[in-house]
Each structure stands twice: as C-alpha cells, then as structure tokens.
Amino acid sequence: MQQNINGSNIKSQMRVSSMSEKEEAQETLEIIQEMSQILNCGLDRQQLAILISMIDNGVNPEALSLVVNEMKTELNTYKKIHKQ
C-alpha cells in the first residue's frame, strides 16, 4: 500500500513539475516576444517559438540568425520585384 501512495505522490509531483515547466516556458516566450517587438524584429510568437525550439535542439544561434536575416532580405527582394 505504501508503494501506491509513494507512486501516486511521484506522479502528482511530476504533473506539478510539468505544469510549472509549461508555465515557465510560456512566461519566457512572452518575454522574448516583448523583446522582439521592442527591437522591431518582425517575428511573431509562433516564429519565435520555432526558433527557440531549434536552438534548444542544438542549432547554432548565430547561424540561425544569419539564415533568418537572409530569408527576410530575400522576401523583401521578392516583394519589390513582384510589386512592379
């Protein structure tokens, strides 16, 4: 019986830990989104979440920023060409 109680305590602690981790991740994303808006980066919440996930999975942040900047440049060029 003691094992069940301990087992359920561990499961509930894991759920609480999981919830607090989710809350922390949400709060961190909100802060990063605010910073992005202040710096006028032009990235929305979903784009920022993808970039953060990529960095968390080992992508080099500097290389990623270069790719994002290059993609923005290409998009602006495309828009200019197709406006004419």
Score class of each variant (00 low, 15 high):
residue 46 Q to R: 07
residue 53 S to W: 00
residue 34 E to K: 13
residue 44 D to M: 07
residue 51 L to H: 08
residue 27 E to M: 13
residue 40 N to G: 12
residue 34 E to A: 14
residue 55 I to S: 07
residue 32 I to C: 01
residue 35 M to I: 08
residue 47 Q to L: 00
residue 49 A to E: 00
residue 37 Q to W: 02
residue 47 Q to S: 02
residue 52 I to D: 04
residue 41 C to M: 15
residue 43 L to S: 12
residue 42 G to Q: 08
residue 40 N to Q: 15
residue 44 D to A: 07
residue 34 E to H: 13
residue 37 Q to A: 06
residue 42 G to E: 04
residue 40 N to L: 10
residue 41 C to T: 14
residue 33 Q to R: 13
residue 52 I to Q: 10
residue 44 D to W: 04
residue 34 E to N: 14
residue 30 E to M: 03
residue 32 I to E: 01
residue 56 D to I: 01
residue 27 E to V: 12
residue 30 E to Y: 03
residue 25 A to C: 11
residue 32 I to Y: 00
residue 37 Q to L: 06
residue 39 L to A: 07
residue 41 C to W: 14
residue 46 Q to W: 02
residue 54 M to A: 11
residue 41 C to P: 07
residue 43 L to W: 13
residue 48 L to R: 09
residue 37 Q to Y: 02
residue 41 C to R: 14
residue 56 D to M: 02
residue 35 M to L: 13
residue 55 I to R: 07
residue 35 M to G: 09
residue 53 S to R: 01
residue 22 K to F: 11
residue 25 A to N: 11
residue 50 I to S: 12
residue 31 I to Y: 02
residue 27 E to S: 12
residue 33 Q to W: 11
residue 43 L to V: 10
residue 55 I to Y: 04
residue 47 Q to G: 00
residue 46 Q to V: 06
residue 39 L to V: 01
residue 35 M to W: 05
residue 24 E to T: 14
residue 54 M to P: 03
residue 25 A to D: 11
residue 35 M to Q: 11
residue 52 I to V: 14
residue 36 S to E: 03
residue 27 E to W: 11
residue 39 L to E: 02
residue 48 L to W: 08
residue 43 L to E: 14
residue 29 L to R: 08
residue 30 E to K: 05
residue 49 A to P: 00
residue 50 I to P: 04
residue 51 L to R: 04
residue 32 I to G: 01
residue 23 E to H: 08
residue 36 S to P: 08
residue 47 Q to V: 00
residue 33 Q to I: 09
residue 28 T to E: 06
residue 32 I to R: 01
residue 43 L to A: 15
residue 52 I to S: 11
residue 22 K to I: 10
residue 48 L to H: 10
residue 45 R to H: 09
residue 27 E to D: 09
residue 22 K to G: 06
residue 48 L to Y: 09
residue 49 A to V: 00
residue 49 A to K: 00
residue 45 R to V: 05
residue 34 E to G: 12
residue 38 I to S: 04
residue 40 N to R: 13
residue 51 L to D: 02
residue 55 I to H: 06
residue 50 I to V: 15
residue 22 K to N: 09
residue 30 E to P: 01
residue 55 I to D: 03
residue 26 Q to A: 14
residue 45 R to K: 13
residue 24 E to L: 12
residue 34 E to P: 11
residue 33 Q to D: 12
residue 46 Q to A: 08
residue 40 N to F: 08
residue 22 K to M: 12
